[in-house]
Amino acid sequence: MNRLQKLLKEQKDIFSVYYTAGYPNLNDTMPVLNALQKSGTHLVELGMPFSDPLADGPTIQKSSEQALENGMSLKVLFEQIKDMRSSIDMPIVLMGYFNPVFKYGVEAFVKKCSEVGVDGVILPDLPFDEYQDNYQDLFEQNGISNIFLITPQTPDERIKLIDDNSNGFIYMVSSASVTGAKKGLSDEQITYFNRVNNLGLSTGRLIGFGISNKETFQTACDFASGAIIGSAFVKLLDENGASEKAIADFVKNIKNN
């Protein structure tokens, strides 16, 4: 069992944060990570910036652009986090688009993840079939969980297939949207959460996209193992930089207990 699987098994109301590596400054990656851990965050999705982030809204687009301008790349990121396990106990998931990973070499990437202590990977534009045909063995042999997204439009059959092939968590996208698009959770979304909960899945779910405050976080936790806050946190970094105090306040205001 890796850290991620352990967390999903043991922790209720998982408080998870996404932020873009190398933002707002190139070397903010580790200070932000340390501040998040100190604040009681359970899980971090560390964004690998890409020039063409087509599932992201303006906030994360802008952070990716800035991070790339700052000089962020996979090589730099792995260098920054190579010793993270001396201070970080939370599970860490890398999130980004497929092309930079493909260019780096998928095998080299997965091995490097394993070496530095990354627990899982989210690559929204790596389709399920492609993963299954070419990469599943590689990921499993290296103990890296590949995390899939599901949306309100994903058919039940496909959700079950994804469940059968997941070993970390399932990323439940809250609505038909890009990141940071909507506020609040509607009845329609609740119906979708309930539908998924009634499928009897074996993999835990975290809800993401549009989770931005205490209220949406709480609601999401009622229907899943926890939730992921992305754009709202990236905005905080934009406004306050990697301030340990601002991060601590942000987390305290949203997280349960």
């Binding site: 020039s51 092309n99 534009d125």
Partner: peptide, 22 residues
């Protein structure tokens, strides 16, 4: 170009050494 993924398709594309589309 070298091989990569752009707009949902695996094909040749112009990219940096780090896989950013140029």
């Amino acid at each position: 170009g070298d091989l990569g993924v752009i707009h949902g398709s695996k094909t040749f594309l112009m990219q940096s050494d780090d896989g950013q589309i140029t």
